[in-house]
């Protein structure tokens, strides 16, 4: 059974891009275009890893992240921040910060090291 990655990003192009990159490397994916939707999908799909954009319409990434960490069952899910703005201060213990535009090889490298 392949590991599952949740992609949270409001830009459909980025979502499509990440989906393609992850499936090409043998991962299953699920997607959300907002924080609220992201939380629902996390609870339903129980992904092994989450990629998170910081700047989205409505609720921003950090809000999603705080709610995620409040949930006992989900709080250990690793999070990679992929964003156009600096997110180091907004999200403290993400396993990596990837700045847009990014190198897909490097992203895959980090994911392999984290969830195999």
């Amino acid at each position: 059974m392949p590991k599952k990655i949740l992609i949270v990003d409001d830009d459909p192009v980025i979502v499509k891009y990440l989906q393609a990159v992850f499936s090409d490397n043998g991962y299953a994916t699920c997607t959300a275009t907002s924080s609220m939707e992201g939380l629902e999908v996390v609870r339903r799909e129980k992904p092994d890893l989450i990629t998170l954009d910081i700047q989205m319409p409505g609720e921003w990434g950090p809000r999603f992240y705080r709610k995620l960490r409040q949930d006992k069952e989900l709080k250990n899910t690793p999070v990679i921040v992929i964003s156009g703005i600096d997110g180091e201060h907004a999200i403290k213990d993400a396993i990596a910060f990837i700045k847009k535009p990014f190198d897909p090889e490097k992203l895959i490298g980090i994911i392999k090291n984290t969830i195999g």
Binding site: D11, I14, Y17, A20, G84, K99, K100, P101
Partner: peptide, 11 residues
């Protein structure tokens, strides 16, 4: 521009 570049990467 970062968004557009990432989009071009995707395409």
């Amino acid at each position: 521009i970062k968004g557009v570049l990432t989009g071009l990467d995707a395409g």
